[in-house]
């Protein structure tokens, strides 16, 4: 349905800085190279300024395979080293079911229903869920 939007060179995924949070919105099909480029860009953006959180909005993504899954996991690991939290937001049901079947449960990643909730989760003023860390446990 959605045509690949990222050319092998050129088109980049926008990385928006909102306060101390980076908002990355993925759309459609992402070339491997573009995904790796994005990973580098996020790393640089975190290092360059005081970022406390990264939100990756994937509500417009129809496919997450193990390659893209690895990119998410590495972004989160990298961010953690620089004291920033990563939240993947808006994963579609079909994508979630497929990832579970694939064996990719991304235990280290925090998740949210949508970008808005992810931002709220990361903002220091947010009222955290009671006994909140339950969602972060990794098997």
């Amino acid at each position: 349905m959605s045509a690949p939007i990222a050319g092998s060179s050129g088109t980049q995924v926008p990385v928006l800085k909102l306060g101390t949070v980076l908002l990355v919105t993925l759309q459609g099909d992402l070339y491997d190279e573009a995904a790796e480029q994005l990973q580098r860009n996020i790393g640089e953006a975190i290092a360059a300024s005081s970022v406390t959180g990264v939100v990756i909005d994937i509500s417009g993504v129809e496919i997450v395979d193990s390659f893209l899954g690895r990119v998410f996991a590495e972004v989160a690991a990298h961010a953690k080293l620089l004291a920033a939290q990563t939240v993947v937001a808006g994963m579609r049901p079909a994508v979630a079911i497929t990832l579970v079947e694939l064996g990719l449960t991304l235990p280290g990643l925090r998740t949210a229903l949508n970008a808005e909730e992810a931002m709220r989760l990361l903002s220091p003023a947010s009222t955290p869920l009671h006994h909140s860390p339950a969602r972060q446990e990794s098997p």
């Binding site: 579609r92 049901p93 229903l113």
Partner: peptide, 13 residues
């Protein structure tokens, strides 16, 4: 278990 895991990926408990 799969349903629980998929819900978690979507940001629900």
């Amino acid at each position: 278990m799969k349903t629980v895991a998929a819900a978690r990926l979507m940001g629900a408990e």
